[in-house]
Design a protein around this nucleic acid. Structure first.
Lengths: 170, 170
DNA sequence: CTTAGAGTTCATTAAAAATTGAACGGGCCA
DNA sequence: TGGCCCGTTCAATTTTTAATGAACTCTAAG
């Protein structure tokens, strides 16, 4: 084995202050979206790292378990928030963060929000079926109005999401 | 005491199927925003109720504790998602749901997202202060670029939020 | 074929969040 | 003034969620 030549570039197994702050910023940030802290930490460290990192770097430097990192990376990959890239060790998979906001938001909308909206559509259908069963005329009218309102909400949401993506798309 | 006359209008202490479905829809719905299930249930029941409800109605019909309902109502009030109204018993406070989506979303943006963004601004300032301390020229340039990127993210978010509100404002 | 190390999975454990319920404050009427 | 009831608060508890780590798969090198 040969270590010598690259020693001065060796990654520290701890975070410098700037990294600490960015990691913490993302860790807190992702929580408004209901995501686990570890996911934010992982993305945060990739975001502030000039060099791509492998799983083991994340485990060591963030001090979180291999299992958590594996799951966090899997999730970030499905969002399209990180990219697999080549690195010094051919046996390992290295990652770098995609620093476009639209990628993050777009991925979140696609993976987390759309599915909910789809199931919402079905549930409104079921609701409609329930409303027609209502015997009392005026109650039925009231329920019908409310279900129609929910339909409109869903349409508005469908309108807004692509709009967000367009604005973030520059 | 006199019950007779209004017995047929008495509120059941359980939910009918339509109510059950709407309550459940909202209970699940609010979770994408990271809010507790009980908040969704409360809003949901107010949403499908033609008559305003008092705290006790919610406790009995949703089978959740007085404490939870009190806190849930408090939260929904700060969002502006519900309204206090007069009701049959002058001693009680009755509520009805505001069924405009913009109220819900607007309240959420104002109460939950803006504060985070404000603190984010401060944290970016702190980050900037840290970056200038970096001795290594090229590292400093890199960090500086990333912090600038975060600044742009914040600006984009500031741009998007009012846009959402305008679109929902019909 | 065997070994070694990267990466995943998932049952267990630990941590965080929501819910409960008892105690409290305050208004109102007798 | 005292009893009653509505509503709030918050410490204790339960429930939910995330993190851990050991066992596993897979690939590649010897």
């Amino acid at each position: 084995m040969c270590w010598g030549v690259f020693v001065s570039d060796a990654k520290p197994n701890t975070l410098v202050e700037i990294e600490r702050q960015v990691v913490s910023l993302f860790a807190d940030g992702v929580r408004v979206a209901g995501l686990p802290r570890s996911v934010g930490e992982i993305y945060g460290l990739l975001f502030v790292s000039a060099e791509p990192l492998a799983m083991d770097d994340l485990v060591v430097r963030l001090k979180i378990s291999k299992g958590s990192v594996s799951q966090g990376l899997k999730f970030l990959r499905t969002l399209g928030a990180i990219r697999e890239v080549e690195g010094p060790d051919v046996r390992r998979t290295y990652y770098e963060g995609d620093i476009e906001l639209k990628k993050l938001v777009g991925g979140f909308i696609r993976e987390q929000m759309r599915p909910h909206m789809e199931s919402g559509k079905d549930r409104l259908k079921a609701l409609d079926a329930e409303v027609v069963k209502e015997k009392d005329e005026s109650k039925r009218a009231f329920y019908d109005e409310r279900v129609k309102k929910l339909d409109r909400w869903l349409k508005q949401a469908k309108l807004v999401l692509p709009l967000i993506q367009r604005v973030l798309g520059e």
